[in-house]
Write a protein that binds this DNA or RNA. Structure first.
Lengths: 336, 336
DNA sequence: AATCCGATTGTTAACGTGTGCATGGCTATG
DNA sequence: CATAGCCATGCACACGTTAACAATCGGATT
C-alpha cells in the first residue's frame, strides 16, 4: 500500500520532512549526498506523492479537460477517437485527461479553476458559447479547437473547412458537374456553415446560381444523409453530384442511391468531408476532404501545456490545412 | 473568481467554519434554520468546494479511470465512443472520468489509490495482466470489462463473443455455406480467441473439419481485412463465405472482393462482428453480430459506483448477450 | 578576535475541509 | 430546585505537502 509519506522517509533518513520535500523536488538547496540518500529511500519504499495534498498547496489539480459540445449526437466516433489520441500523445504522465460532453453537466458547478488546470474545448456549435464565457469568467486557462470563436485573447485552432469545401466543389465543377447538391451539417454548427460557404463561393466563381432545392439540411449522421439523398433523387431534375458535409452522411447517401438501383459514381457522384478511417474502404472509396483532427489536437495540447507552464501564449488563431482526397466516388464527366 | 471558502461563509453567517461545513453537507446536527441561512449565503456567493482539500481529508480523489489496453491500434473508434458514452451517462457530476490507454503510461507510478477512486479497465488483451495485478496489489477498486479474467474476486463484465460467433457461423451453415473462412482478430486478444472458438464449435456441430488455409490472422483493422481477403481469393478453391472477426475487417474484405470484380454477396458472402454504427450503411449492409458495448459500459459504471459507495459488490461475472443481425451481405444458397 | 557569509537544515505555518470531543443552553423529570 | 439529557455549536486538530523564515556551522573577511 502506498501510505508512505514524506514524514516516514524523513524519519528513516534522520532529517526533517522539509528536507525530504526539497530533495524529491530537486531543490538546489540540498546537499547532493543527502539528496541521493533520500531519493534512494523513497525509491525503496515505493513512495508516491499524494497528489491531493500537492494540489491543495500548489493550487494545481493536474487535471486537464477535453470537452465536446456533446457526446450524444453530432459527434462522430472517429472525431472523438482522433481527438483523444492526439491529446494523450502530448500530455505528460502526471496529468489526467478528463473527457466529457458539456451537455453531460447538469451545471458547470464542478468546472472551476481548482478542479481543472486547463481545458481544451472541441467546440462544435455556437451552443457552447455560454460555456466559453463561463470558463473565461472563472479564469480557467482554456483554448478552443475546431470552431472559430469571436472572443479576443482566446487561443483558437481551427481547420480550414471553408477552403476545403471550396476545393471539393471546385473539383466537382472541373469534373464537369454543373448540378451539384449539398447536404448540410447540423443546424447551428459553425462547421456546417463554413462548408456551405465554401460550396457557395465555388459555385459563384463558376457563375452558377445557388439553388435552394439542392441544399438539404442534415445533422452529420448516417441516417440524415440517407434521407437527404432520398429527397434529392425525387427531384424532377436530379443532381449529378452530391457534396455531403460529412463522410457519415455520404455513406448514408450512397446507401440511398444504391437501394434505388443507381450506381455510384456512374449514375450519381457523391463526396464526403472528414476523411474518417473508413472512407478509403467503402464501396466506392469516398472522395472527401481530410480534416487534420489529430494534428490539431496534438497542437492544442502543446499550446495548452505551454500556456500552463509559462504564462505566455503565442498567436491566437491558427488555421489547419484541409486537403482534398480524390478517390472513386466522383465521376469525371468531361475529358478536360 | 471562486476563492470563496467555508471560512468566508462562516464569517458572514456569524458561525464557525465547522458549522458551515456541516450545513453544506446536510448534517442532521445543524438547526434547519441555520442550515438554510448558510446555504443561501453559499449560493449567493457562488461557493464551490475546493475538491483538492476535500480529497485530502476524505481520502477520495473523485477521479474514475476508464482505461483501454491501447488507444493506438486495435481499438476501434466506435468501441471507444460507445464505452465513453455509456460511462458518462452514469457517473455523477462530481466525478471526473479519465480516459487513457495503459500503454500511454511510462510507468504506473501515477496510478494509485489516492489518484483514482476506482478504475474500469476495458481489457482487450492478456497484455494488461500486469496492470490488473498492479491495481489489485495497490488496493484500487477496479472492474474489468470486455475480457474474461481468471482472477477471483474481480467484477468482470464480458460480452458473450463465443456464442455470437457460433450463431453467426451456424447461420452461414444454414444458408447452405460449407466452405467458410474466418478472418481472425488481433493475436493475443482474448476476443479474437473466443470468436474463433465459436466458429470452430459451429463447424464441428455440422461435422465440418477446420481447415487451416481458411483461417487467416488479422488485427481487427480495415487494412488487415483487405489483405486477408486477397489471400483467400487467391486460394485454388475459394470460400463461399467469409466470417470476419470485426466489422472493420469485413469492410476491408468487401473492398478487396469488389476490386477484383466480385460481387458481395452474390459471388462471395462476408459477415462482420461488432455492429458498429456503420454496418447498416455499407454496401451491401453488413450481416454481423451486435456487441452491447454501451450497455456493458453503463452497467460497469453502475457496478463501480456501487462498489465505491457501499463496499459490497454483487456477482462477479456477468455475460452480456450478443445478437445476430441479419442484413444483406450473406447469401442464402439453399431454399431450406 | 569579532563579524559576516554561504551552504545546509529545521521550525512553523499555511492550503481548505472534515470530525472527535468539549461546551453551553434549554427542557423534562424527579 | 437539582440534575440528567438533548440539541446546536465551537474548538482544536488532522490530512500531506510546500515555503517563508529562522537557525546552525564552518570558514573567510576585516
Amino acid at each position: 500500500m502506498s501510505n508512505v509519506t514524506i514524514k516516514d522517509i524523513a524519519r528513516m533518513a534522520g532529517v526533517s520532512h522539509t528536507t525530504v520535500s526539497r530533495a524529491l523536488n530537486d531543490s538546489p538547496l540540498i546537499n547532493p549526498e543527502t539528496k541521493e540518500k533520500i531519493k534512494s529511500i523513497a525509491g525503496s519504499l515505493n513512495y508516491t506523492p499524494n497528489y491531493s495534498a500537492k494540489s491543495l498547496v500548489l493550487d494545481r489539480s493536474y487535471n486537464l479537460g477535453l470537452f465536446f459540445t456533446t457526446l450524444r449526437q453530432g459527434t462522430s466516433p472517429g472525431f472523438l477517437y482522433e481527438a483523444i489520441k492526439g491529446v494523450n500523445e502530448i500530455i505528460k504522465d502526471r496529468y489526467n485527461l478528463i473527457v466529457r460532453g458539456i451537455d453531460d453537466y447538469k451545471s458547470y458547478h464542478h468546472v472551476n479553476r481548482k478542479s481543472f488546470d486547463g481545458i481544451m474545448l472541441m467546440s462544435q456549435s455556437a451552443a457552447d458559447q455560454p460555456f466559453i464565457e463561463y470558463a473565461s469568467d472563472h479564469g480557467i486557462p482554456f483554448i478552443v479547437l475546431n470552431r472559430e470563436v469571436e472572443m479576443s485573447g482566446v487561443v483558437n485552432l481551427i481547420p480550414d473547412d471553408q477552403s476545403g469545401a471550396y476545393r471539393m466543389t471546385e473539383y466537382m465543377l472541373r469534373c464537369g458537374h454543373r448540378r451539384i447538391a449539398i447536404v448540410e451539417g447540423k443546424a447551428g454548427f459553425k462547421s456546417a456553415q463554413a462548408r456551405k460557404e465554401g460550396y457557395r463561393e465555388a459555385l459563384l466563381a463558376y457563375g452558377i446560381p445557388l439553388q435552394d432545392e439542392l441544399c438539404i439540411r442534415g445533422d452529420y449522421g448516417l441516417e440524415s444523409g440517407y434521407k437527404a439523398m432520398v429527397r434529392l433523387l425525387a427531384l424532377p431534375e436530379r443532381p449529378t453530384a452530391v457534396f455531403c458535409s460529412s463522410d457519415d452522411m455520404a455513406l448514408g447517401a450512397v446507401k440511398a442511391a444504391v437501394e434505388r438501383g443507381l450506381r455510384v459514381p456512374d449514375d450519381v457522384s457523391v463526396a464526403g468531408f472528414d476523411d474518417t478511417g473508413y472512407s478509403a474502404f467503402t464501396t466506392p472509396a469516398l472522395t472527401t476532404v481530410r480534416r487534420p483532427i489529430e494534428e490539431m489536437s496534438r497542437a492544442g495540447a502543446e499550446r495548452l501545456m505551454a500556456l500552463l507552464e509559462t504564462k505566455e501564449s503565442a498567436e491566437r488563431k491558427t488555421l489547419f490545412h484541409t486537403e482534398l482526397i480524390v478517390r472513386d466516388s466522383v465521376k469525371r464527366l468531361n475529358t478536360e
